[in-house]
């Protein structure tokens, strides 16, 4: 079991991707700016990459264990929801 786990860990075999549409490219960029700065815990066996194309925010996870992946996605969704609520209440963004 231990060795199988270690092999799987090296592969980072679990993945998850998410694409979130925003009303405009600027809002997608803002969401990226709000959600990208905090890194995943260093020893967590998980990586998360955020990118923006047009008005979409894309998030791509790679993880060794489902448990860690679930925690990361769940907290990301909480923060995403908070960003969207903040935009609804205090937006739209001032024109640049």
């Amino acid at each position: 079991m231990e060795e199988a786990g270690a092999d799987r860990a090296r592969l980072g075999c679990l993945g998850f991707t998410l694409s979130v549409p925003f009303p405009s490219p600027l809002e997608a960029q803002i969401a990226h700016g709000s959600l990208a700065p905090d890194p995943e815990p260093r020893k967590g066996g998980i990586s998360k990459e955020l990118t923006v194309t047009e008005n979409f925010l894309h998030v791509c996870w790679k993880a060794d264990e489902a448990r860690v992946l679930r925690v990361s996605i769940s907290s990301f969704l909480d923060h995403l929801s908070l960003v969207i609520q903040t935009m609804e209440m205090f937006g739209p963004p001032v024109p640049r």
Binding site: S75, H79, T86
Partner: peptide, 19 residues
């Protein structure tokens, strides 16, 4: 950590929305 991130996420969003 978790409470700090929650508030930081809102602060970042406001700063960007309001430029």
């Amino acid at each position: 950590g978790a409470p700090l991130v929650t508030v930081a996420v809102v602060a970042r969003t406001l700063a960007q929305l309001w430029n």
